[in-house]
Amino acid sequence: MTNNLKQISKHPLFGYVILALGLIGLQLLFMFTDGIVTLTVSRAIAMSMIYTIAAMGLGILMGLAGLASLGTAAFVGLGAYIAANILISFHVPFFVVILAVTIVAIVIGSIIGFISLRVRGLHLLVITLAFATILNELFITPNNFTGGPSGITNVPFPELGMFLQLDRETVYFLILGVMFLLIMLTLNIINSPTGRAMLAMSSSESLAKAMGINVLKYRVLAFVISTIYAMIAGVLFVSSLTAASPASWNFMLSLNLLAAVILGGSAKPSGVIMGCFAIFTLDLVVLRNFAFFVQNPSASMVFSGALIIIIYAKFPGGLTKLVQEARHLIIKIVKGAKHGTSLE
């Protein structure tokens, strides 16, 4: 029996399942009791999960493929606008929306991937920034698709299949479900030949080429994957907030997502989740209780900015490394206690 438990706890998805159960529990507490979990907390966790999805795509791009992008927020926005338009005009189930958005994401990701083949590092940052600027200009320009500066409001909640209409509370579970599926997908990508090829490509492109890895293919693939993640995050954003406005996906969101990935310190979902929850949940749940941060909502960005600098200067590896070191320390102490040796 204990052996079985031990085996289960060793399963790679074990931690994520526990996390998902905990998050479900939180939302149930919010829905069926009053006061233990507030609306703010429930909303903040939903937003953090949405941003986690976008950041996981960025994590694959940065941590695995060694590429970088400053356009994540704009792609979240594009996904949101497409979803908003589909949800308003047609009565289609949720997976059709995801499918439509994925197709657009594949096209756009391929375009950037092809551009990225000839440039790297700094050039890539500038080009993705330019791409994001183009999209942001299109969002703000008044037109039927994006609704101009005021955006789109009153988007209906999505329906799952033909019967299940979601509402303000239950959309939380949709977000959680999509996040969980994407976590599994990410883990599979990381452990698959694709992930290893990307890793090889990021450490040395010449070596990867010499080993017969098609660099073009994997670069494009990395961008396609990260664009799909970002645009699915946009779909969920619109589904949960029922509105889309251009101010939501400015450059600062891209930078915050970047900060989250850097803070997490790993392409693995565990790192990205830690980074995102540390940056977004902390801001939305804890800091918003202080009057100063309510008056200056932008003030919390200081932490993301400072964290980027500190991690690059002093602590490469981020939270993932911190947790690893803490775990090693605890194991050392526990083993020391077992063997009867005291810690001097």
Partner: peptide, 11 residues
């Protein structure tokens, strides 16, 4: 680091 500075200064 300059990206981090953007966040700090614009805050």
């Amino acid at each position: 680091v300059t990206l981090g500075l953007i966040l700090i200064i614009s805050a």
